[in-house]
Each structure stands twice: as C-alpha cells, then as structure tokens.
Simulated assay, not measured.
Amino acid sequence: MRNSFRVHAALFFVALIYAANYSLSKDVMPKYMGPFGIVTLRIIGAALFFALIKYFVAPQDKITGRADNLRSVACGVLGIGLNQLLFFSGLNLTSPISASLLQTIAPIVVVIASAILLKEKITLPRVLGIAVGMAGAGMLILGRHTQSAAAPNPTLGNLYILANATVFGLYLVLSAPLMRKYHAFTVLARVFLVGAFIAVPFGWRNALEADYAHFPLVIWLEIGYMIVFLTILAYLLNNWALKYASPALLGVYIYPQPVLAVLIAVALGKDHLTWGKAGQAALIFLGVWLVSQKPKAAPIPAVEAAPN
C-alpha cells in the first residue's frame, strides 16, 4: 500500500513537471534558443548525470544479451532522441494547450503497441476508444487555428506533437521489461547515450550560437528547470515507477497534464482555452477512458479429472 502511494505520488509530480514545461519553454524558444538547442542541452546534461550516478551506484550492472541491447537502443532512439526533437519542434510552433491535449493520445498508443508487442487483447470498447480519441486529435490538428507569435504554425506543430506522443507511448511499452530487469540508472545511462547520438547532430550548432551572455536570470532558471526537473527527475521517476506499475498506468497519468497545463498557461497569460478546444479535449478524454477499460476476465472452464 505504501509503495503504491509512492508510485502515484511520483507520477503526479511528473505530470506537474510536464504541465509547467508547456508554458515555461515558450519563454526560452525561439527568442533565446531554438528547439534543437534546448534538446541538446537537456540530453547532454542528463546523459552525463546518469552515466556518473550509474558509475557509483551500479558499476557492475550491465545490459546483456542481443535482445536487451537492441531494446535499449530502440528506447534511446524513440524515448530520448525522436521524442525530444519532435516535442520541442512541435511546441515551438503550436500553443501550450493544444500541445498538452495531444499528449493524451499516448495511452491509446500504449494499448495498440501492447496488443502488437505484448499480445494484449483489444476489446470492442477499446477499438471504439481508439476511434473516438483519434477523431478528437484529428479535429484539434486540422481545425481552424489563429496564428500568433506563440503559435506560428499550429497545424504542423500539432502533427509533431502527435508524432511525439506516439513515440513516447512506444517507449513506455519497450522500456518496461528493461526497468524490471536492470537498475534504473543502468537503463537511463544507456538510453540517454543513444539519444545523444540522435539529437546532438541536429542541435549542437543551435546550442553553440545562443547568446548566453545576454540571457536574463529567469531564462537561466527555466533552462535549468528543463534540464534538472523535466529531463533528469521526470525520467528517473517515470522509470522508477515502471518497476512497480504497468506502462498503461504511466499512460493514465498523462490525463492530468492538460488540466494542469491549462491552469498554468492561463494563469501566466501564455494561452487561452476556447469552447472548440474544450470539445476536442472531451473527445480525446472519452477515447482514452474507453481504451483504459480493462477487458473482463474470461470465466475459467471446469476441468475434468484426468484418467489414471
């Protein structure tokens, strides 16, 4: 019971970290640094941190076997490299509220990926939920948008965020077996190293060209938040939770993100909630709720005694 409370507390804190990021990141990019530059700083900082901690905490723990090594590479490519590049590219082009709403598609991806990779059953309500959720996401992506300095290309940005939610859902499914088999720092050190090889070639120039000498204190604090909280702490808590919870539960904790993100964005004056977005959000939430319903266990047939 106590461990269950810790898992839920950790996942809610992660949701709060992610929700705040939708608004805070808009202060940094693109005025002070481009999205790929932010990704480069985040991944390099986290890769160094996890490699150092792993050296002291679990020096003998190593990922072994061809299957686990390939899985760790896939997690690094999807969960770190592509995930970060797509997310910040999308957030740079769309609004905080739209980006946070589209993130709720990830649980649907988890269910589909679990059915394909882990052979979990997809029931009729889940099929309906996938259809309803995707309809809501499609309306949000293709709906009429008002371009602004904060959202210069919302349609393209929303497509990037949808792709980001997809690869993150795949990452949750693929990383769960690794987290149950190896130390969390062993897995995180590996996946961030792989992610660095994917992301840094896109963002190193962006990171080097930033005018750091003229960054206000608040920008430094927000960049520090993205490295320490959004990257290191959030990934650490998420992957720790995977030791005790299913990928689906982590997906469920994406639900509070839009609510928290809306409250933060509106409070900071970064975005505003419209009735259209509220309706699209309702469709997405309904779809995700249907998808999250567990199939009923089949009745156990009577077993006849075997003849002697």
Rank of each mutant, 00 (worst) to 15 (best):
R2N: 11
N3G: 14
R6H: 12
A9E: 04
L11P: 03
F12P: 11
A15M: 06
I17R: 04
Y18W: 03
K31G: 15
G37E: 00
I38P: 02
L41V: 09
R42V: 08
I43L: 02
I44M: 02
A51L: 08
K54A: 12
A58D: 09
I63V: 04
T64P: 09
D68R: 09
D68G: 04
D68S: 10
V73G: 06
A74D: 01
A74S: 05
L78E: 01
I80N: 03
Q84E: 04
L93C: 06
P96I: 07
L101N: 01
P107R: 05
I108Y: 03
L117Y: 09
L117E: 11
K119D: 11
E120D: 09
I122T: 10
L124R: 14
P125F: 03
R126Y: 08
V127N: 15
V127C: 15
L128K: 13
A135W: 11
G143N: 11
R144E: 11
T146V: 01
Q147W: 04
S148A: 05
N153Q: 13
T155S: 01
L156T: 02
G157Q: 00
Y160M: 02
L162C: 04
A163Y: 01
F168G: 05
G169R: 08
Y171P: 09
A176N: 10
P177C: 08
R180L: 11
K181I: 06
Y182R: 13
A184D: 15
T186C: 05
A189R: 05
F192N: 06
L193I: 11
L193R: 14
G195S: 08
A196W: 00
A199N: 04
F202W: 02
F202C: 09
A207V: 12
L208K: 15
D211Q: 09
E222L: 12
Y225S: 03
Y225D: 01
Y225H: 02
Y235I: 14
A241M: 05
K243V: 06
K243A: 04
A245G: 08
A245K: 10
S246K: 15
S246I: 14
Y253L: 05
I254D: 07
P256A: 06
P256N: 05
Q257T: 05
P258H: 01
L260E: 04
A261P: 00
L263A: 13
A267S: 05
A267D: 10
G269Y: 01
D271T: 03
H272K: 14
A281S: 10
V288Y: 00
Q293R: 14
A297L: 14
A297H: 13
A297Q: 15
I300M: 15
P301L: 12
V303N: 12
P307A: 12
P307N: 09
